[in-house]
C-alpha cells in the first residue's frame, strides 16, 4: 500500500513548503548572526550593564525550548497589545533563538584571537569599529564556520516547529496533506527527504566555503 508516487501530485505544495522553510531559516540565521555578533560584543563589553543584559539574553534563550519561545512571542505578546503575524513571529523567535547560540559560538571565536593583533591595529590608528570589522570578525567568522554551519542546520530542523503557529512551511504542508490523503508515511518521508536535501546542501556549501577561505 506504500506508494511514494502519491506525493508527486502535491509536489507543488511540498516544494513551496521547502522554499518557505529555506527562506525562513535563511532570514533567521542572518538576523541571528547580527544579533549574535552584537550579543557577543556586549558579552565582553567593558560596561557592566551590557554584559549583564547579554548574559541574561543568552542564558534565557539557550535554556528554554524553542516551542516555548514561539508561544511567548505569538500568544503572549498580543496580551500586551503587540500583534504579530505568524510568519513574522516565527522569524523573530528563530532569530532570537539562533542569536543566542551564535553569540556563544562567536564568543569562543573571539577568545581564540591573540590580543596582539587587536593591539597592533589600534596602535596603528584603527578605530574600535575598524578593528572589529577588518581584524577580528573576518578571522572569527572563518574560525567558526563549521560551528555556524551546524547552527544553520539546527535552525532548518527547528524551523519545523513554527508549523505549530500555522506557518505553511514544509512540515505544515506535509502534515496537512498527510491528513487529507491519509498517507502520513509518504508525506512525512517526503518532508524528511526534502529537509535532508536542504541540510546536505548547506553542509556542502559550508565545506566549500571553508576550503575557499583556507590558505597556506
Amino acid at each position: 500500500m506504500f506508494d511514494m508516487t502519491v506525493v508527486l501530485d502535491y509536489r507543488g505544495a511540498l516544494l513551496h513548503g521547502l522554499w518557505m522553510t529555506a527562506w525562513i531559516s535563511a532570514l533567521a540565521i542572518v538576523l541571528g548572526l547580527v544579533i549574535g555578533v552584537l550579543a557577543a560584543i556586549a558579552r565582553v563589553s567593558s560596561h557592566r550593564l551590557w554584559r549583564a543584559l547579554a548574559a541574561v539574553y543568552i542564558s534565557a534563550l539557550r535554556g528554554t525550548p524553542l516551542l516555548v519561545q514561539l508561544a511567548v512571542i505569538f500568544f503572549m505578546l498580543p496580551l500586551i497589545g503587540v500583534q504579530l503575524p505568524a510568519l513574522l513571529a516565527a522569524i523573530i523567535a528563530l532569530a532570537l533563538n539562533s542569536g543566542a547560540s551564535q553569540a556563544e559560538i562567536l564568543r569562543g571565536g573571539f577568545a581564540t584571537l591573540p590580543p596582539g593583533q587587536t593591539e597592533a591595529a589600534w596602535d596603528i590608528g584603527y578605530t574600535r569599529w575598524q578593528v572589529l570589522r577588518y581584524v577580528q570578525l573576518p578571522q572569527v567568522l572563518r574560525a567558526t564556520i563549521p560551528a555556524l554551519v551546524n547552527e544553520t542546520i539546527d535552525i532548518i530542523k527547528n524551523s519545523s516547529l513554527v508549523s505549530t503557529i500555522a506557518v505553511t512551511e514544509l512540515m505544515r504542508v506535509a502534515h496537512t496533506y498527510s491528513s487529507t490523503t491519509y498517507r502520513p508515511i509518504e508525506f512525512f518521508l517526503a518532508a524528511g527527504l526534502l529537509y535532508l536535501l536542504l541540510t546536505l546542501t548547506v553542509s556542502q556549501a559550508g565545506r566549500y566555503l571553508e576550503r575557499r577561505l583556507r590558505h597556506a
Partner: peptide, 13 residues
Amino acid sequence: VVMVFQQFNLWPH
C-alpha cells in the same frame, strides 16, 4: 608613534 612588537602581530588572514 608606532610600536613594533615581539610577536610581530601581523594579521594572519
